[in-house]
Simulated assay, not measured.
Amino acid sequence: MNKNKQVKEVKVNEIAEKLGKAKSVVLVSYQGITVEQDTALRKKLRESGIDYKVYKNTLVSRAAKSLNIEGLDPYLEGPVSIAFGYENETLAAKLLSDFAKESKKLELKAAYVDGSVLDAEGVKMLATIPSKEVLIGKFLGSIKSPLSNLVYMLNAVAESKA
């Protein structure tokens, strides 16, 4: 096996490992953003625990096929960078969507979340969903409020009879 083929095989395995671990994968077209913008974006993503890389599209396609991920190939055209979100399903989409609004050059292409491929509109919708922790907090708050009111009312009834 020649050296070039071995290097490509290592890269495909690296991409497949990241695809397998990631809770969300967001594909963006970065053509037209400045070096300063790219550096700022990478820093923000890194601080949030998101891995942001540029790979050859053919290698990403091979890695996706090795994991039986279908539907990414149409979005792997032109210069594409990939954000791998390991902690949260929505954070990568949110950060990239916010950055795309600011820069106007970064274009959201697609995302792969929970076994489904989302188009650009799906990525924008994903970006608006609060994180899992926030949703759980809101749910618990909505459960706690009626229970607190019930306890307050029962306590008031008990005090009035006493």
Rank of each mutant, 00 (worst) to 15 (best):
S24M: 07
A40F: 09
K65A: 12
L91I: 08
D114M: 13
F139S: 07
K65E: 14
D51P: 04
T58N: 13
K94I: 09
A110W: 14
K56S: 00
A120T: 00
Q31E: 01
K132M: 08
I15M: 08
E121M: 04
S61E: 11
E133T: 05
A83T: 04
V54P: 09
L76A: 01
A63G: 03
S160P: 01
K11A: 01
K11C: 01
A111C: 09
E36T: 08
E89P: 03
S66W: 12
K161L: 13
K23Q: 15
F139L: 15
I136D: 10
I50N: 02
T34Q: 15
Y112E: 08
G49V: 05
I82T: 15
G20N: 15
L19K: 00
Y52V: 14
S66K: 14
K53S: 11
K65F: 11
E107L: 14
I69Q: 03
Q37A: 15
E102G: 11
D38T: 10
I82R: 01
A162W: 00
L126C: 01
Q6S: 00
S29L: 04
A158F: 04
K132F: 11
V60K: 02
A64D: 08
E159V: 02
K124F: 05
S66C: 06
D73N: 09
S145R: 11
Y30C: 00
V25I: 14
R46C: 13
K18S: 07
L140T: 06
V7T: 04
L95E: 08
N155M: 03
S81H: 05
S145P: 04
L135N: 14
V10K: 09
V35I: 12
A111K: 13
V26Q: 01
L150P: 06
I69L: 14
D119S: 12
L140M: 15
S142Q: 11
S131V: 02
K105I: 03
A120D: 03
A158Q: 06
A92E: 10
T39K: 09
A16D: 10
G20I: 03
S48V: 09
K94N: 08
D119Y: 15
N57D: 07
S148L: 12
L108A: 07
P74S: 03
S81T: 03
S145Q: 13
K43H: 13
V60D: 02
V54M: 11
A158E: 10
L126A: 04
F99H: 12
E87G: 03
